[in-house]
Every structure is written in structure tokens, then in C-alpha cells.
Simulated scan of single mutants.
Amino acid sequence: MNLLPDPDVLDPYSEEPVQLTSEKVRWRARDATYLAGKWDALSERIPRFVVDDFKATADGPANPHIRTVVRLPASVTEQRIPVGVVSKTYRLAQHADVVEMCLKGIRAHNIDPSVLRCEVGLTPLGEWMNFRAYFPENFSHNPSDGNKLALRLECFNSVDGSSRLVILFGWFRFICTNGLIIGETKASLRDTHDENLNLEVIPEIISEGLAKVKADLARLRQWEQSSIESSTFDVWVDDHLAERWGKKAACRALHICRSGADVELLDPFAGGKPSEKPIKLLNDVPGADERLEWQGHIPGLIENLRDHLKPA
């Protein structure tokens, strides 16, 4: 795997306040790219939207059942452009407003958000956003293998009504782009964009998550001091994990844990247990559309596996 840059440090040779990263993800068959920098600079790149009547012509009647979400021009050369159709009960949550509520919760813990490295992932029209904020060194875990785990706040928001607003804490390992959600540090909000959506609860959720960081750090140290027999782990993957995630995903997880690299199933329809399936070793671990949902499964899976752990 390629070593990723330390999120606490921007490129020292760049004079740009915002830098384009090499990371790309797919969201609903659309490419999303990431910018890195401080929030004050990144916020200027985030588009704003309005909810408008859904009409065939400017002077025509509005559809009484649905409305449309429209991206506002970000410059004099742009025009308004529709990005989605939503119900009458839909409530728009502006990307920047969601982030500001997150930062309000961070400030409550005497952390200055203006010094944090942040990242913003956006689809081409900006209807989907993934915001990330990386916390200072004293929030990090330094395992014996030298690959530091940093605490990261993640926020996912879409303005076209296609997915929920999600806010959570996780641990980011510098040797890959995938995060890890464990135990207590899960300031979790998963809410639909309807009339009941309340952004005012976000600061409290952030504060509750930060208050549980110490418990997560203790749990990470405990895991590092434990080990598991390979054969026992294989049985757990073939049984519990396969039942939870399916055989294909369980097979991939098994080999990622063994080698740090993803695999491709040579025959997706081959029978047998996940540990028995014929595979081709790949170079690295790509992201997946199910990443966010699967990250949320990790605490429960580890809790199930914990009975098999033993002191190193």
C-alpha cells in the first residue's frame, strides 16, 4: 500500500490553501474527489442549494406532490442547475451548515477547529459531500507496528434526498483510506431529511463522542495485547462473519486480515466456505459502496470475536 500523508501536515511546498488529493470514491455511480486544507478555505468551495417548485416551464403550474433541489451558481459564469427531486416533506440541510454544527461541538471541548486538517469530498455537482476533520496528536493511538491511528470525524450529507445525513467518529490508519469504528467513540447520527431533521442536536452528539475517546484508546491497547489462533479466526470468518456479511465479503475480510491486501474471487459462484474459495491476490484494499454501513458493524463483530482472543 502507498503511505498516505500525515493528516496533520499539508504539503509544505504548496502555497495553495486548498489541495486536491489523490483519493477518489464512487457514490451512486458518480465519481467524488477530495480537497484538503483548513475549513475556512474549504468552505468557499462548497456549493449551496435551494428547494424550488417542480415545473415544466417558468410560468407553468407546480407539481403539488414533489419539489426540486437546485444548485445555486458559484460564479458569474454558472447558472442554476437541478440536482434532485424530493418530497414535500423534505428538509434541505446545507453541507456547510452541517459542518458548522460539527465544529461547534468540537469547540465545546476547547479544540480550535481552525487548526485542524480537514478534507471535503464532493460529487461533480456537489449534491453529495463527505467532510472529515482530523484531531491533534494527543487524540491518536500509536501501536507497536508504527502505523499511527488518528481520530477522525466524518460527516456524510446529500442534498438530493437520496441518502441520510450521517455523522460519526472513527479511527484512521495512515497506511490506507478506510476508517475503523470501535466501541464507544461513535458520535452517531443517521437521520433522514424530513421535517423532523434537527441540526441543533449535532454539537451535543459530537461532545458525547469526544468524551468517550479515552475508553476507545484503552480498548485499542487491549486489542493490541491480544492474539488469536489462525484456525480459530478462520472458523469465526466461515461462520459468524459469513452469516453477517455474506461469503464473498467474509472471504475478502479473511485475506485482508492475513495479508493486508484485498482479493478477487476467481469464481464467485464456487461452493465452499469463505476460507476455501479460490482467490487472486490484489495489490491494495479499495473502498466499497457498503463501506460506511460495514464500518458500523465493527463494534458488534469485535465483541463477538473477543471471546476467542487470548493474551499475547
Rank of each mutant, 00 (worst) to 15 (best):
L35N: 10
L35Q: 12
A36I: 11
A36R: 08
G37A: 01
K38R: 14
W39V: 06
D40K: 15
D40S: 15
L42I: 08
S43M: 13
S43Q: 15
E44M: 03
E44F: 09
E44N: 08
E44D: 14
R45F: 13
R45M: 14
I46R: 00
I46A: 02
I46N: 03
P47H: 02
R48K: 12
V50H: 05
D52N: 06
D52C: 03
D53K: 14
F54I: 08
F54H: 15
K55E: 07
K55N: 02
A56F: 12
T57D: 11
T57R: 09
A58V: 14
G60I: 06
G60N: 02
G60A: 03
P61W: 02
H65N: 11
I66S: 14
R67M: 09
T68Y: 02
T68V: 15
V69I: 06
P73V: 08
P73Y: 03
S75T: 15
V76E: 15
T77N: 09
E78H: 01
Q79V: 13
Q79R: 14
R80C: 11
I81D: 13
I81R: 13
P82F: 09
V83M: 00
V85H: 03
V85S: 00
V86G: 08
V86C: 07
K88D: 15
K88E: 13
Y90S: 00
Y90V: 03
L92F: 11
A93I: 00
Q94E: 10
H95T: 10
D97R: 06
D97A: 14
D97G: 04
V98N: 02
E100V: 12
C102R: 09
C102Y: 04
I106T: 04
R107N: 08
R107Q: 14
H109M: 05
H109Q: 09
N110Q: 15
N110A: 13
I111L: 15
D112Q: 12
D112R: 10
P113I: 02
P113V: 08
S114H: 14
S114F: 10
S114R: 13
L116R: 07
L116N: 10
C118Q: 04
C118E: 03
C118K: 00
E119V: 01
E119N: 08
E119K: 10
V120D: 01
G121N: 10
G121Q: 06
L122S: 04
L122V: 05
T123S: 12
T123Y: 00
P124E: 14
P124A: 11
